[in-house]
Simulated scan of single mutants.
Amino acid sequence: MILYLHGFRSSPKSFKAQLLAARVAELGGANDWRCPMLPVSPLQAIALAEAQVAEAQVAEAVKGARGEVTVIGSSLGGYLATYLAEKHGWRAVLLNPAVLPERDLSAYLGEQPLWHGGGSIVVEPRHLDELRALGVSAITKPERYYLFAATGDEVLDYREMLAHYPGVETKLIEGSDHAISEFANYVDDVLAFCGMTPAERV
């Protein structure tokens, strides 16, 4: 199954999540796709992600199947994905992942508007503490990771990403931006790493 974790102030309505969901459906894997709306609390977000995977695995077990899990994380979702990959041995695709979000989000304490559909979240100091608790000082199995890092990311420094994920398969995108606006060009590449390719689904 594929679990997608969106970024800070984002949602399952983000364009990357929508592109991936549509392509997964085209390839016949809609039942293997999970993309929850994450709560502002990082610990609660992790618990929700784990619960969704556990629920899907129970359904797979009933069918006599047991598929591998790949978590795709964008920005802050990439930070959470790294924690989950290390804890559970899952594969992970990281899209301009946050490396030190407790530092970066310290400027966003208080009420913050969401990017999609209106509404807001309230970022509290305890959320920064939760992020620190979820930090992975060093990844253990680089072969489980696929990093997408854009040199033109206007929010996060791609050099921190490269330093934090040594030895992993990396797509270094010259230019672009934090959102990876040309992400449609990479959707099939991401899904191939997840084990889902058109050749296997026809």
Rank of each mutant, 00 (worst) to 15 (best):
F15Y: 14
F15W: 10
K16V: 13
K16N: 13
A17S: 14
L20P: 04
A21T: 02
A22D: 13
A22N: 12
A22G: 11
R23V: 07
R23S: 06
R23F: 08
R23L: 04
V24M: 10
A25S: 13
A25G: 03
E26V: 08
E26M: 11
E26Q: 09
G28R: 07
G29T: 02
G29Y: 06
A30N: 08
A30W: 04
N31F: 03
N31Y: 00
D32P: 01
W33I: 12
R34D: 09
P36R: 14
M37L: 15
M37H: 06
M37G: 13
M37P: 00
M37V: 09
L38G: 12
L38V: 04
P39A: 15
P39M: 10
S41N: 12
S41A: 13
P42N: 09
P42F: 05
P42Q: 04
L43P: 00
L43W: 13
L43C: 08
Q44S: 11
I46L: 06
I46A: 03
A47W: 01
A47T: 12
A47F: 00
L48Y: 00
L48I: 01
L48H: 02
A49W: 02
E50K: 05
E50Q: 08
E50W: 01
A51P: 02
A51K: 14
A51D: 14
Q52K: 11
Q52D: 08
Q52E: 15
V53N: 04
V53D: 10
V53P: 02
V53R: 00
A54M: 09
Q57S: 08
Q57N: 01
V58R: 13
A59V: 09
E60C: 04
E60P: 03
A61L: 09
K63T: 07
K63H: 10
A65D: 12
A65M: 15
A65L: 15
R66M: 12
G67C: 02
G67P: 09
G67E: 13
G67M: 04
E68R: 10
T70Y: 01
I72N: 00
G73H: 06
G73P: 09
G73F: 05
S74E: 15
S74I: 03
S74Q: 14
S74Y: 09
S75Q: 14
L76E: 06
G78E: 11
L80K: 02
A81H: 01
T82N: 05
T82I: 07
T82S: 07
Y83T: 11
Y83G: 01
Y83N: 12
L84K: 01
E86I: 10
E86F: 00
K87G: 01
K87Y: 05
H88T: 07
G89V: 10
G89L: 07
W90C: 03
